[in-house]
Simulated scan of single mutants.
Amino acid sequence: MSGTHSAPSPGRDHPGERAAPDPIRLLAIRDTALSVDEVFAAVGDPAAGGTALFVGTVRSHDGGTDVDALSYSAHPTAEAEMRGIAEKVVADFPVRALAAVHRVGDLSIGDLAVVVAVSCPHRGEAFEACRKLIDDLKHQVPIWKHQTFSDGTDEWVGA
């Protein structure tokens, strides 16, 4: 037998380079503390070369005013809206696994408000997909934030 055998050229034809068959692993709206570890574990995938994770926390200020209290409320359709956004991200990127959880109820400064993560074959895809996921969740899911400021004023955001 003559000739040499060369390794197949890298390409997008390998199954690990494509989206997983059912990549949406965790979607939830909760009135209990969120866990970065839970979300990170949910997006573990042996074919993923990149995992991007975003954690949104309650900050002590907004618009130049100190925040004393914050509460999130969600419309009953919020989880269904989250699923629609997740499905769109999965359709647009080669997602191996995706997870998103959002908190509702009264939160304190420093509490986790939202945790999202996406794993993809490569880091660039993971970053882009995670950015798309959190941006679309913030703009489209009917979750409203009520802030009370130290000067006695308050405001609703997203309502």
Rank of each mutant, 00 (worst) to 15 (best):
T57C: 02
V58T: 04
R59S: 00
S60F: 13
H61T: 10
H61M: 10
H61A: 10
H61E: 11
G64L: 07
T65V: 14
T65C: 08
T65Y: 03
D66K: 12
V67I: 03
V67F: 03
D68F: 08
D68N: 09
A69C: 06
A69H: 08
L70Y: 11
L70A: 13
S71Y: 10
S71L: 08
Y72S: 00
S73K: 13
A74K: 04
H75I: 04
H75E: 06
P76L: 09
P76W: 11
T77N: 15
A78F: 06
A78K: 05
A78R: 01
A78G: 04
E79L: 15
E79H: 14
A80Q: 15
E81H: 15
E81K: 14
E81Y: 14
E81I: 12
E81Q: 15
M82I: 04
M82A: 01
R83P: 14
R83S: 13
R83Y: 14
G84D: 07
I85D: 01
A86I: 05
A86K: 05
K88V: 13
V89L: 03
V90Q: 08
A91D: 05
A91K: 08
D92C: 09
D92W: 10
P94N: 00
P94L: 00
V95H: 03
V95C: 04
R96K: 01
R96P: 00
R96G: 00
A97T: 03
A97C: 07
A97Q: 05
A100D: 09
A100M: 07
A100T: 07
V101I: 08
V101N: 04
V101L: 04
V101E: 06
H102Y: 07
H102R: 05
H102T: 02
D106Q: 14
D106S: 14
S108P: 06
S108W: 10
S108G: 08
I109L: 07
G110W: 08
G110P: 09
D111K: 01
D111F: 03
L112G: 07
A113N: 01
A113S: 07
V115F: 01
V115P: 04
V116T: 15
A117M: 02
A117R: 00
V118P: 07
S119F: 00
C120E: 01
C120T: 00
R123A: 04
E125N: 10
E125M: 12
E125R: 11
F127H: 06
F127P: 01
F127K: 06
E128W: 10
E128T: 14
R131N: 14
R131C: 13
K132W: 14
K132D: 13
K132H: 15
K132Q: 13
I134F: 04
D135W: 10
D136E: 11
D136A: 09
D136G: 05
K138Q: 02
K138E: 01
Q140W: 10
Q140I: 09
Q140L: 13
Q140N: 13
Q140R: 15
V141L: 11
V141T: 11
P142T: 06
P142M: 06
P142L: 06
I143W: 11
W144G: 05
W144I: 05
W144E: 07
H146R: 15
T148C: 11
F149V: 13
F149T: 09
F149W: 09
D151E: 02
D151W: 02
G152W: 05
G152S: 05
G152K: 02
G152A: 05
T153I: 03
T153L: 02
